[in-house]
């Protein structure tokens, strides 16, 4: 397993390099202008100067190599410096990947946005899983029961109704009409005592529920299908023939086997957390990574979009590996050597 993991990690390096190059080319070819959103009162000569100051005058390959250096050498050095607390080399003149939109290091922007994204999207993923698994298990065990029918209906609704609709609906009900929950997420809120903790819960409630419903809809279907697959297996009959209680049959024999594919799906979904939830973040003004990405795209902020998408690529490659390894650990029939 270790050899396998190392081999996969080594293979990931050229893959990621190719990905970064493709992202860079696509962004570069896209007909976009970072000064395009400036007011028209700014004359074209000034725009040209601004573009020059952003480094857009340089040829493509130079910009790509510069980005590679900044991302793979300078930024890691900065992080190490941060850990050690002592400067490494000439840290002041080391160029960082800098956003054109805010003229600040992209990595800092990402770090700044991580908490709200993890709170909202991460928590919703967790809540989604916690809702989905029991629903999936019960739906499968009581296939075609009322519970199953209602579960199927809710999943269908959760999956097919877009989050911008459910989000808006919740805002109209809970913020506008009832006035219970805030419609705008306060990223400056710090949890220090019970009342600020409650405030945090209140502002998390709506975005988390909207996303959790969406996540749960998908996962519960998946869980149900996997359970159904296993419930009709002979080994389940064997377990019953052994005289195991239904609880043991369901939770030990069936659930464990059914979880194998589901856990893989869950692991593959984790990078999405870091991708943020573009629409939900916009609706509740969470301003996490999703909103950062969309802003970067709107403003042709190539370094920002490049870095963000590349980090997503790394996460996707990494969690694919994790999913494979977890699969191997859960399913004794699979061994990588």
């Amino acid at each position: 397993m270790l050899n396998y993991t190392i081999r996969r990690l080594l293979f990931a390096i050229p893959t990621l390099l190719v990905i970064s190059f493709i992202i860079f080319i696509i962004l570069d070819l896209a007909p976009n202008d970072p000064t395009g959103n400036l007011p028209l009162t700014i004359p074209a000569e000034v725009r040209a100067q601004i573009r020059e100051s952003l480094g857009l005058g340089q040829p493509f390959h130079i910009r790509y190599i510069k980005w590679l250096e900044q991302f793979f050498i300078n930024e890691p050095l900065n992080i190490m410096e941060h850990w050690w607390g002592a400067p490494i080399g000439d840290s002041d003149s080391r160029l960082r990947v800098t956003s054109w939109m805010s003229r600040s290091p992209v990595v800092d922007l990402i770090v700044e946005r991580m908490p709200q994204t993890l709170w909202v999207v991460g928590l919703s993923y967790l809540v989604g899983i916690l809702i989905a698994l029991p629903i999936g298990v019960i739906s499968a065990y009581k296939q075609y029961s009322w519970f199953d029918q209602i579960g199927t209906f809710i999943s269908m609704v959760g999956f097919s109704v877009p989050t911008f609709f459910t989000g808006l609906l919740l805002i109209v009900v809970f913020s506008v009409n009832l006035g219970w929950l805030p419609s705008i997420y306060d990223t400056t809120l710090k949890v220090t005592d019970f009342s600020s903790f409650m405030a945090q819960l209140r502002q998390l409630a709506m975005p988390v529920m909207v996303l959790a419903l969406f996540n749960a809809a998908q996962l519960s279907r998946f869980m149900r299908a996997s359970m159904l697959d296993n419930l009709n297996q002979d080994y389940v009959r064997t377990a019953r023939a052994k005289g195991m209680s239904e609880k043991v049959v369901l939770l030990v024999h069936v659930l464990r086997n059914s979880l194998i594919p589901v856990v893989t799906v869950i692991a593959l979904g984790v990078p999405q957390i870091f991708g943020g939830a573009i629409i939900t973040e916009q609706i509740f003004k969470v301003n996490g990574l999703g909103q950062l990405l969309i802003l970067g795209i709107e403003n042709a902020d190539i370094p920002l979009v490049q870095t963000l998408t590349f980090i997503f690529a790394i996460l996707i490659v990494f969690f694919n590996l994790i999913a494979d390894v977890v699969y191997g650990m859960l399913d004794p029939r699979i061994r990588y050597d």
Binding site: D234, Y235, R237, T238, R256, N257, I260, R333
Partner: peptide
């Protein structure tokens, strides 16, 4: 004792 010895044993 079941017909399919593979399917009747819990793979995990």
């Amino acid at each position: 004792i079941f017909q399919d010895p593979q399917a009747s044993l819990n793979p995990r």
